[in-house]
Design a protein around this nucleic acid. Structure first.
Lengths: 221, 221
DNA sequence: GAAGAAAGGATAGTTGAACTATCCTTTATG
DNA sequence: CATAAAGGATAGTTCAACTATCCTTTCTTC
């Protein structure tokens, strides 16, 4: 199919597709002549994934490009290509410079978090970006005057663990590497808003129970 | 204190503070003369909260303004002011227009989600924005060819519930309404990246266990 | 009490991300 | 062969989030 049909099939405008091609988010089509290329179903799938990453996942074009670049690169091992998707996906976070005075607090919190998770038996690389996100969030909570007690942290970790296990089980069902990688990216990115939305709804439920009692009628908008 | 000191205390540039004042993210200082205003510790707290919402929470200035506007408005009831923070916080989502052909699929998925959650005993308003986020995410997963089996959805809900309950217990410790509201906003926004980061780390752990075995040494960066 | 410095409101300018429109060569088609 | 459309290259647009400038008012110091 030509660019125009790729656009029609996915609902993405032709200029936008060109933009994604330039940015390397989707692989170029097979050039059928000097000024014309042919696209296939894989392009449709990829384009839909990209749109999902950008709109639902809230990723930037740069993040999406980086993730997909590694996911596509056969130079990495299967484990790396599967892992790098989740490894590179977290948002970038500002880490204080070594000479910064806040660095001490940062290192303390980060060390505490690592220690706690390792005590729970979790394995992860010391340089995992997710650790920085964790540190930044806990530190910010502290700076606002809210402590994150270790037991609450354990509760978070314990609640999350079975989710990750179930998801991993789902992913490993895909035998073809490319399919497994795409599934990893899709699940990693698209389940996040699901979890957060459920948390918000749970808050609403808990709150309304305390406010209206367990047996009351549900309030409607 | 003056604007300059507010800037020094929080590390936010003077022009940025002016910008936030214009946007209504922080209340104006008490005018001590025609061209000078006085700020206090409340402004420092608020400004730090705003920065946390924007940087760590990833919210837009508009979202932060809307949430804080309701949180500050004494015209709402305690329950409303506490609830509206989480109610307004989810990201905006594109809902298909009534005449759109995708509307049927949308309604079907949304109905299914509501039904499932209500079956679990959850109470929430039909118009909750989080429901739209849920619908959008599940629908996008489906469009990419990934089903979200009802049992997995239940697992997500079951895992999230105790987290929300524990958080709500923490929040209700604050007796002063304003403190409770600020705590709600802070926890709602800042715990989200914590949960997502833990999920990423859990994925890494599960993956490395399958890859290297349960007893192997932890791989380091 | 005058003069320079500084605060701060109003306004306009800047930056970066994510598209979007135009130009123009090439190529398919009648 | 002429016309029209595809599509790569390039430049322009839009929006959010700041950031810089201007200028009046006020404070301080002599």
């Amino acid at each position: 199919m030509h660019l125009a049909e790729l656009s029609r099939r996915t609902g993405v405008s032709v200029p936008s597709i060109k933009f994604y091609l330039r940015e390397g988010l989707i692989p170029p089509g097979v050039p059928v002549s000097a000024r014309k290329s042919e696209y296939d179903e894989e392009h449709v799938r990829r384009l839909r994934l990209v749109r999902a990453m950008l709109t639902v996942g809230g990723m930037s074009v740069g993040q999406a490009r980086d993730v997909l670049a590694v996911a596509d690169d056969p130079a990495f091992t299967r484990h790396e290509r599967l892992g790098i998707a989740q490894y590179m996906l977290p948002p970038k976070v500002t880490v204080p410079e070594p000479d910064d005075e806040g660095r001490a607090a940062w290192d303390a919190v980060r060390g505490q978090i690592c220690e706690e998770l390792r005590a729970l038996g979790w394995r992860f690389q010391d340089g995992a970006p997710a650790l920085d996100v964790l540190t930044r969030s806990v530190l910010t909570l502290q700076e606002l005057g809210y402590e994150t007690p270790i037991e609450q942290f354990r509760r978070y970790a314990a609640a999350i663990r079975p989710i990750a296990e179930a998801e991993y089980a789902t992913i490993t069902q895909y035998e073809v590497l490319e399919e497994a990688i795409e599934a990893t990216v899709a699940y990693t990115v698209l389940v996040e808003p699901i979890l957060l939305a459920l948390r918000r709804l749970a808050h609403e439920d808990v709150s309304s129970r305390l406010h209206y009692g367990d047996e009351g009628e549900v309030r409607r908008a």
